[in-house]
Amino acid sequence: MATKASRSAARVMMAPAVILLLGWMLVPLMMTLWFSFRTYLPLRGGDLGWTGFDNYVRFVTSSAFWPAVQTTLIIVLSVLVITVVLGIFLAMLLDQPMWGQGIVRILVIAPFFVMPTVSALVWKNMFMDPVNGIFSHIWRFFGADPVSWLSDAAMPSIIMIVSWQWLPFATLILLTAIQSLDSEQLEAAEMDGAPKVQRFFYIILPHLARAITIVILIQTIFLLAIFAEIFVTTGGAFGTRTLSYLIFQRVLESQNIGLGSAGGVYAIILANIVAIFLMRIVGKNLDN
């Protein structure tokens, strides 16, 4: 955009997109803020007027708040670690020349195309069901008592389901990054006397830094808001109530829109705190 004319033309042409995007974000945000300061109980009298910061105080002081924040962070962190570590491993495997490479790659990516609700239901009913699930059959085959996964090990189960969903995404991004590594760099390192493990830590991993950053940032955005997986499996019980699930319960189960909206504002704040931390830690990888 070199000239004044082309710059202003560009502004005019971008305007519709910018306005749409702003409306898309601002309207719900404003409504959330608006309701968070009101007592709004749809089934018990409707909009009952201003309450100041009451909703905010009630939301944080509720005994469910801090455990929900903790649960959210544990799920996000665990899934990030699992998908990034396994993603690097799978990407390196898929980068090797092998027979049936195309089909294997499609199979690895497939879980990403399954809707979260469906995949959580499949996990719940076909794998983790203590009576009919495949796991229970395996356990019984070895003479062990079947585990009722979703009640006795609810958090690990949820983390496993969500990781399974996001692993293909991480693998795909990391695979393209690995493929862009100049093979002469690896050969140079080999000649410089770096054994395989060193080549991984000194050459491959730094090369992947940017892709890992992107995986972490994008996944965090989506993982902070996971909902369907919890809704169809544990329903928030057994210590799996995340912040977004808590908000859902306040709005729909307790029919308290004001309280839920205040929770929504907290969720926005939490997401921003996490984002700031992430940008501090990994964001510098995005600079050239």
Binding site: D182, E184, Q185, E187, A188, A189, E190, M191, D192, G193, A194, P195, Y202, I203, P206
Partner: peptide
Amino acid sequence: PAKRGLAMVFQSYALY
């Protein structure tokens, strides 16, 4: 390669 005591300069330089 590492044990041959040879050093190589690549066409792409292959710097890290």
